[in-house]
Design a protein around this nucleic acid. Sequence first.
DNA 1: TTGTAAGCGTTATCAG
DNA 2: CTGATAACGCTTACAA
Lengths: 347, 347
Amino acid sequence: MKITIKDIAKIAGVNPSTVSRSLNDSDLVSIKTKERIKKIAKEKGFEFNANARGLSTKKTDTIGVIFPEEYEEFSAGLYLGYLMNSIRRVLEKESLDNIVDFPRNRITGKSNVEQLIIKGKVDGLLLINSELTESEVDVIRKSKIPHVFLHSKPKNFSILGMDFIYTDHVIGGYLATEHLIELGHRNIMTITTNEEGNEEFGERTAGYRDALRKHNIIIDEGLIFKVETNFRAGYNLIEENLELLEHITAIFAQSDMVALGVIEKLKELGKKIPEDISVVGYDDIKFGEYFSPKLTTIHQPRQKLAKIACERLVKLINKNNKEEVLQKILKPKLIVRESTGKRIIKI
Amino acid sequence: MKITIKDIAKIAGVNPSTVSRSLNDSDLVSIKTKERIKKIAKEKGFEFNANARGLSTKKTDTIGVIFPEEYEEFSAGLYLGYLMNSIRRVLEKESLDNIVDFPRNRITGKSNVEQLIIKGKVDGLLLINSELTESEVDVIRKSKIPHVFLHSKPKNFSILGMDFIYTDHVIGGYLATEHLIELGHRNIMTITTNEEGNEEFGERTAGYRDALRKHNIIIDEGLIFKVETNFRAGYNLIEENLELLEHITAIFAQSDMVALGVIEKLKELGKKIPEDISVVGYDDIKFGEYFSPKLTTIHQPRQKLAKIACERLVKLINKNNKEEVLQKILKPKLIVRESTGKRIIKI
DNA sequence: TTGTAAGCGTTATCAG
DNA sequence: CTGATAACGCTTACAA
């Protein structure tokens, strides 16, 4: 038998409502009784029943975090795993629990976004990298549930009035490429994803193009490669394109895992990094720092992202939304380590 | 305004209780009205309010998943990330949501395990690698909340009557070492964690000893190394102990990431894997398969673990617990890939 | 087969 | 400042 507000009331010889007021720090109770009741509650290990409270107040103190399916994949999984931890750490400060869900249930086919909202299981939604259906957008809008999109730009529906925060990958691609150019490199290969329609990687490639253009370097379409985003794919790409190594002096791999695979193969071929070839990655996974040589990469400000998104969500939930909407785009940062260096002109 | 059971009742011209019964598939309603009501509910997009239902039935259709803090670490994080995905996939089948929490809130210092139980936010608990306080064990026992420990042996409290499932790491250590012995190796180094009191790794080392003993090989304490469990640590260990390479022909690294770091350094030193030195890892992270050479390792049956644990939990929740308790220990499996080979005796 | 009414634990409104 | 009471949305005896 769990202890309820009534039990406390009986013990204290007061009405349940007085207990409720006391425990909610209402100033409609005398400080004396308030403290007395709090003491009893603490002794008895009382905690509010979440369902009863939720039924009465329409608040659940839990928020829904929707992760994309590809969370399973190794490389994305790493990054998203970090992001998840950052989110949990921020929500912890607000004593909010979080329900983690995929966008939809694979068995029933139902949308978890809709279910969480309609069932009233959450006070707000953190939508990570989500493509929503019309029906989902509709439910979100009608229910007016607080929500923030993060990690990537909301796709396939109007952004109007929606809160979001993500990282600008055009700038990321630009920074990586410009870094190589400034080191004297001219023949720079880039490796993007072979996944159709992935905007995130599309932006990275756009940034690559921008940087080359800006520095009056002719874009060679033959230097833009599309492969899966994992270690093996980077490794294999080099193996299958050995003749390339004659032309290029630098590689911008749009994912750290690919970059590491590339480096691994280059090392096997007896190439020196960065003396023979410079390599830049993207994501700043911890592993890159452990690797040899330590990887130069683009850091996505995931902690900042998580922090801003969560804090905004909390504000929305508490109705402290001073600004109309939050639409923020963060800048990634270049982290120079050991895998890039000045172009050395061979005689 | 969300639609409630009353609204449906009004539309159908029946009493709310009839709607409730219909939607819960009670056979106290005529098939005709049942179907009529179901149709209306579907049209209106009705879903039960979780809080009201929970208040009434004491069921929440969500379970709590408690992850250890070290989820943040790279190597453990990977493994646990996989495990988490497996869990989510199983729970999805039961249409259960899951609240993910650390063991305790770092800010308030409160135990999330206790909070979730006392507040009645979850129907059951999946405790991953958890060390519980006395108070927590107490709350769990008194509340009789269904729960399963998984991933590692419950520590620091009596196992009696507690459900658990984990992988036997003694066998894992044994399999890895015996594999090397069978390939002709005699001087086998092992690398375990430097973390005090980590039973999991302690077991792996015990398995290593068992295998040597069984095959009448004298255990050289100088071949048991303790380092952090990450890539860099493996890499550095070799770098700092070059003289070792004279003596040994095989290494059992008790974590894949350490194994990969070891291999990386060995390759840099011009050693051939497995011709010069064989290396076995532990965990079977996907990356090991991508690496070159592909890593021989010990596979922990994480999907099976997740499946059995979740299914058991669901049974407990639905009170279908035929067996008294589930106390199961799974056997890990040796996966032979490219990083181990016959000992080659040099002339 | 259906309706009525009490109850789940909490909050909020209205008196006192 | 405190108590009584209705209400939140749903389930479940108990009646009919």
